[in-house]
Design a protein around this nucleic acid. Structure first.
Lengths: 205, 205
DNA sequence: CTGTCTATCTAAACACTGTATAGATACCAT
DNA sequence: ATGGTATCTATACAGTGTTTAGATAGACAG
């Protein structure tokens, strides 16, 4: 699995391998299984080894969190840039956010568990999160420049859309969407596209 | 602080006091501070004592989670019953959800940290959560019976509204709303009421 | 009141965790 | 090759979840 063969004493690639092991653990056994010792064991290394690459357990997770946010931001920026018109951009932003959460479950889970990353102590994590939110704000500014949403407050709309994206992503990651689909006998993708249609309809006023 | 004076050996009220201590800890020091030993210490009792009232640490938290959901559901039901018309009911449901999250931060935090309650092993917790969601579904059914939202899919609207409520509540609980308000120089209540106005406007199509 | 039963507690122990320290090892530049 | 530095191991300590055996107290029958 590891991309670089490990030498006897010096690992050579521990830092990134610890991060990957952490993500893999979250993915396969849940956040509850993430202990620094376990991550070290998974990387074939002693319990003290991680401390040469990360100050803390929180620092490891903070780094993953920050990376998750920058990746998400990059994706959102791309979507905004490629969108045909400002309103579709909004809906596609929502779609991209949810798709990101689905594709990178582990990242998303860590990103929204601030108690694990001591995120109030890591300003870069905060900043990375703010960047993602900023993209939504910009997209809404685009809409306003195009003359839409004149009747509603800008901040209100930003918060509304962000809440929608975040809440929906949370439902996806927690498996609630899947469960709802089992009960109602539909497939998740179909439900999500219904949500997309609903939002599109609501925004077209 | 404790409502019942504790006798020397037998506590008399440990079960409820452990739950209160747990909530207090979450509230004052964050979820990271919640260890069963710490909760026991807070209640003035030995580390093994809680096991006579809860199978697990997860069981303690699962019970709080379930209670949180039933309280929330009761509140939502009341709001739906008292609402003037179906559409205001929807917005007030959203408002009630967010207000609940703000007023009962500790509950809300625990409710959406399934890894702490092993919620997949406690079907009652799942059921309590489903009940809350059901209220939203009912409220939307009310709207449809009144002839509204004929153009959009029901499930899509349920998920949309639930996502919105949940996402917004998460932003409130995580302090993101407060931070946004500091940056934009407004007060949280004002921002929240702007969101409410936005949602009202979007739903009035 | 006495004795017994049961619920509730404490004490002690286990494996596990995060983290700090000191020492071993291997790579790198001189 | 030699010394320095980065990286690792070994070990240790406090704190955690949980289990076990034993102590205590309240309730209840006689």
């Amino acid at each position: 699995m590891s991309t670089t063969p490990k030498t006897s004493y010096h690992h050579g690639n521990l830092r990134t391998e610890l991060m990957e092991a952490c993500l893999r653990l979250v993915d396969e056994e849940g956040i509850g299984a993430v202990s620094l010792r376990r991550v070290a064991r998974e990387a074939g290394v002693s319990p003290g080894a991680p401390y040469h690459h990360f100050a803390d357990r929180a620092a490891l997770i903070a780094e993953l969190t920050a990376r998750g946010f920058t990746d998400l931001t990059a994706r959102l920026r791309a979507v905004r840039a490629e969108a045909a018109d400002p309103v579709t951009a909004l809906v596609e932003l929502l779609e991209a956010y949810v798709e990101f959460a689905g594709r990178h479950r582990a990242y998303f889970l860590l990103m929204f568990r601030p108690e694990l990353s001591a995120s109030d102590k890591h300003p870069d994590v905060q900043a990375a999160g703010d960047d993602a939110l900023a993209v939504v704000a910009e997209a809404i500014e685009d809409c306003r420049r195009a003359g839409m949403f004149a009747a509603v407050d800008s901040d209100g709309l930003v918060v509304t859309l962000w809440s929608l994206a975040h809440g929906l992503a949370a439902l996806v990651v927690d498996g609630k969407i899947d469960k709802m689909c089992l009960d109602n006998d539909i497939v998740p993708d179909e439900l999500l596209s219904k949500v997309k249609d609903t939002v599109t309809a609501l925004l077209s006023c």
